[in-house]
Simulated assay, not measured.
Amino acid sequence: MDEARHSPNPSEITALRAELPPQQGNTGQWGQTSQDKTWKYLCFFVSLILLLTVIILSVILSEVLKRTQQVQEKVFQLNEKVTQGLGDAGHDRDFIRSEVFRQMKAVLAGNESSCEPCPLDWKFFQGSCYFFSLDNLTWTQANDSCVQKQAHLVIINSRTEQDFLTSTGQVTSWIGLFKEGQKGNHRWMDGSTPTYFNWDSKELPDNVTAPACMMMYNYGHWRDFSCESGQFAFICERRQNC
């Protein structure tokens, strides 16, 4: 009777087991929590490394793209300088040739010149022949017409040449200057960059949003105009054969 009275019942045995710490290798609640925390720390560490790697690669890629863009801009600027230099050299050559011709003409002073005279209906000025057409054409048509005459739309290099053209009383006419798009540079027919401008103060060319060609008012000022929309007279120019 006493032994039965002091023996623990099943509920007391279960309570005692719950109070005991889990043995090594036990898969109780404490063991599962520790393993979960270890994996969470590991995942966090790997994610942090990946994030840092992505950030570093992004910075490096951004720097590479920036350097590449800088190199491309330098190459573009160099090409622009070379093109402008070639155009300026062509202008200098024409100017020197005109000056030599003018000096020769002054020295000959009445003697017959060895240069071929300008064709009939063409006007002579400083070593060039000019044809003033009154046909109203688009800029492209006008240029084609000049090419057929073994000439090109007029290239104006100086104030002196501008004054000569204005003094002829020619109506509003196309000249050989054009612009390639909104951000393009102005170019003469020979590809050179202008060194002389005579823009109309009321008609600045900066607001033109499409490829444009230049026309000259009868009083001499220049203006951008749509190459194919307008039809104007035009002026052809070609060097005198000497």
Rank of each mutant, 00 (worst) to 15 (best):
T33H: 08
G31L: 01
N26R: 07
R17H: 15
V59M: 03
R67K: 06
S58Q: 12
A15S: 05
L78M: 07
E80H: 06
S11E: 13
E80M: 09
E12K: 14
L42H: 15
Q32D: 02
Q70G: 06
L20E: 11
L50E: 05
V54Q: 13
E73Y: 01
F44R: 10
E80T: 03
E12S: 01
K74V: 08
K40F: 08
G25D: 06
G28E: 11
R17M: 08
I55D: 05
F76L: 04
V54Y: 15
S58N: 12
K40P: 00
L57A: 05
Q69D: 07
F76E: 09
P22K: 14
W30N: 03
A18P: 01
V54D: 13
T68H: 12
D36M: 02
E19V: 15
V54T: 14
L20P: 01
L78H: 08
I49C: 13
V64Y: 11
P21K: 03
Q23T: 14
V71M: 13
Q32V: 12
L57S: 07
E63R: 15
S34F: 09
K74L: 11
F45Q: 01
Q29H: 15
Q77L: 15
L52M: 07
L50P: 00
Q29L: 08
F45G: 09
L42F: 04
E12T: 06
Q32A: 04
K37Q: 04
T14W: 05
K66Y: 12
Q70T: 10
G25Q: 02
L65V: 14
N79D: 13
T53F: 08
D36P: 00
K66M: 02
L50M: 14
I56N: 10
Q69I: 02
I60R: 13
G25W: 02
L57N: 08
F44A: 04
K74R: 14
V54L: 15
K40E: 01
T68G: 09
L51F: 09
V75Y: 09
I60H: 09
L51Y: 03
L57H: 03
F44N: 02
E73H: 05
E80I: 07
E73M: 08
N79M: 11
V64I: 12
I60P: 00
V59A: 06
Q77W: 15
R17E: 10
W39D: 02
V64S: 01
E19C: 15
F44L: 11
V54H: 15
N26W: 09
Q24Y: 15
Q32M: 03
L57P: 00
E80Y: 04
T53A: 10
I13W: 05
W39P: 00
E63D: 15
C43S: 11
L16C: 10
T33M: 10
K37E: 02
Q69G: 06
V54M: 12
F76I: 03
A18W: 01
F45M: 04
E73R: 13
V59C: 02
L57W: 05
D36L: 06
S11K: 15
Q29F: 12
D36S: 04
